[in-house]
């Protein structure tokens, strides 16, 4: 690669980084200005705030699932945390049977069961967003019960925190990832 090409590549990368940073700042700005109750998830800081009009109603520590290529190349499928605005689709409790993706078992070296509908797989309380992203709590059993493992593309919060804010998490409540 010539010096000119290197320079052009650096410039393009810087432009992409700048664009991403701007997008994140815009998402953060939108969450602050949202007049209704909303969740604001800072991926880098691993925090989740319940907020309204920029007032922080509750700050919660969370664990962000890592980015993963869950199927090997070629045609590998990348699972990442969302960016931007999503919304609450539903809140479920410990009786909810979640269809655990097969790659969750594979990643942990577990045999993939025939029936992957696991009641309580997302803990005693979980929030499912409109794009399928899960904000869940550590379950007592099941493939997500290992505290060291955080679901790629998901967010793990403390059950106590989710319980405390549950009444506010009606379908349609915005969730901002930034």
């Amino acid at each position: 690669m010539t010096a000119m090409e290197t320079h052009q590549a650096d410039a393009l990368t810087a432009e992409e980084v700048g664009r991403t940073e701007l997008a994140l700042a815009l998402v953060r700005g939108q969450s602050i200005k949202d007049r209704g109750v909303n969740l604001s998830i800072a991926l880098g800081e691993e925090t989740m705030d319940l907020q309204q009009e920029g007032a922080q109603l509750r700050e919660m520590r969370v664990r962000i699932g890592p980015e993963h290529v869950v199927e090997p190349s070629p045609g590998g499928r990348r699972v990442t945390s969302p960016l931007g605005r999503r919304q609450v689709a539903r809140v479920v409790d410990g009786s909810f049977a979640w269809p655990v993706p097969d790659w969750v078992y594979t990643e942990q070296g577990l045999p993939v069961p025939a029936d992957r509908m696991v009641p309580g797989a997302l803990g005693e309380i979980a929030v499912i967003l409109d794009d399928g992203t899960c904000l869940y709590s550590l379950p007592a059993s099941g493939p997500l019960a290992d505290a060291r493992y955080v679901l790629p593309g998901g967010v793990r919060a403390e059950a106590e925190d989710l319980r405390a804010i549950r009444v506010n998490l009606e379908p349609g409540v915005p969730v901002y990832f930034h």
Partner: peptide, 13 residues
Amino acid sequence: EATRQAQAGVAGP
């Protein structure tokens, strides 16, 4: 709707 709400202004930070 979100845009309209944001433009309506919020309490001082």
